[in-house]
């Protein structure tokens, strides 16, 4: 447990390395904190405002409870998409495995620490996207403290299953594309995917601004039926909805239980999938190979000279 915590801490610190290097060289800590703070408030305001619009519209037809379902579905999708990018980076593109493997750690401990890294980034995402809608809903329905406590617990557990699904998908893809020579090209997919999603989102949002209330309700109904469909395949959605709507601790425990089962199964499968695929694949060898063939040619004349001398 202690080791997992230590490893998580180190991997996390190291994963922020990239962002920092890009940042202006020595911008002071204060400026950085302020700019992150502004960003945070900006996002929270946008999503709080959007939620306010949706909830008041739904309230007109006494269907405000639908909001939670739609919200959780959106959150699940967002987490899956983000985790696909996160899992690719954390599990395959970060070069730390080579340094972690010689340490006396169980494969399972490495796996869990890496999942924790993704989980922390998802929590940051939730602070941006999920806190404001929940508070807005709570205020508009004048919910009690239990609502907030249960919501917090749900937000802590809910992303885990999306992360597991995303990581599993990536592991399957990676173990089939074992011989991917074009890692660099593959690496491009993540940012492109991100841009596309951002575009889709911004179109969707700008689209909704000109919509009438009736059309919006129509749309929300469709979204709600999608929640029904998805909750059949994603078994954590229903208990999460019920837990928040009814401030029910029992439903939360259900969510926790299902997540735990998924987690254990994932660890067992992931162990095989990841370490079989990744360990064979540690490489930065392409360049090296070329150098060496170059050297072989250089050595040949020396050999010839020696041979000649002997003759």
């Amino acid at each position: 447990m202690n080791k997992i915590f230590s490893l998580t801490k180190v991997l996390l610190k190291n994963s922020f390395q990239k962002y920092d290097e890009k940042n202006s060289k020595k911008s002071s800590k204060a400026i950085r904190i302020i700019s992150y703070g502004i960003l945070l408030i900006y996002f929270m305001a946008i999503f709080g405002f959007m939620s306010y619009g949706l909830i008041t519209t739904l309230k007109q037809i006494q269907q405000e409870a639908m909001f939670i379902g739609i919200f959780l579905l959106a959150l699940a999708l967002l987490t899956i998409i983000q985790s696909i990018v996160g899992a690719t980076n954390v599990f395959y593109f970060s070069k730390d495995l080579e340094f972690v493997l010689p340490l006396p750690l169980k494969p399972r401990e490495i796996l869990i620490a890496k999942l924790n890294v993704i989980l922390v980034t998802e929590y940051i995402m939730e602070i941006l996207f999920a806190v404001a809608p929940i508070i807005t809903y709570g205020e508009l329905t004048s919910a009690g403290p239990m609502f907030y406590i249960i919501s917090l617990l749900v937000l802590l557990i809910f992303p885990i299953i999306s992360i597991l699904i995303a990581t599993f998908i990536i592991m399957i893809i990676m173990s089939f594309s074992k011989g991917v020579k074009n890692k660099d090209r593959f690496r491009l997919i993540a940012p492109i995917l991100g841009i596309i999603i951002a575009l889709v989102f911004s179109f969707a949002i700008s689209g909704t601004s000109e919509i009438t209330d009736d059309e919006l309700i129509e749309l929300l109904m469709q979204a709600n039926s999608m929640v029904e469909v998805v909750s059949d395949t994603l078994p954590v959605i229903k208990p999460a909805i019920n837990a928040i709507l009814n401030s029910s601790f029992i439903e939360f425990l259900k969510l926790l239980g299902i997540t735990a089962v998924f987690y254990i199964v994932f660890i067992i499968i992931g162990n095989k999938l990841y370490f079989r695929g990744a360990v064979g694949n540690l490489s930065s060898g392409a360049k090296k190979g070329k150098n060496i063939t170059g050297k072989d040619i250089k050595i040949n004349p020396v050999r010839k000279i020696i041979c000649k001398k002997r003759i």
């Binding site: 230590s6 490893l7 801490k9 180190v10 610190k13 190291n14 922020f16 390395q17 920092d20 730390d96 340094f99």
Partner: peptide, 13 residues
């Protein structure tokens, strides 16, 4: 390795 860490953090790890 783990260049973002301080020396002491690495050793403690």
């Amino acid at each position: 390795i783990f260049l973002k860490l301080k020396g002491i953090e690495y050793l403690n790890f």
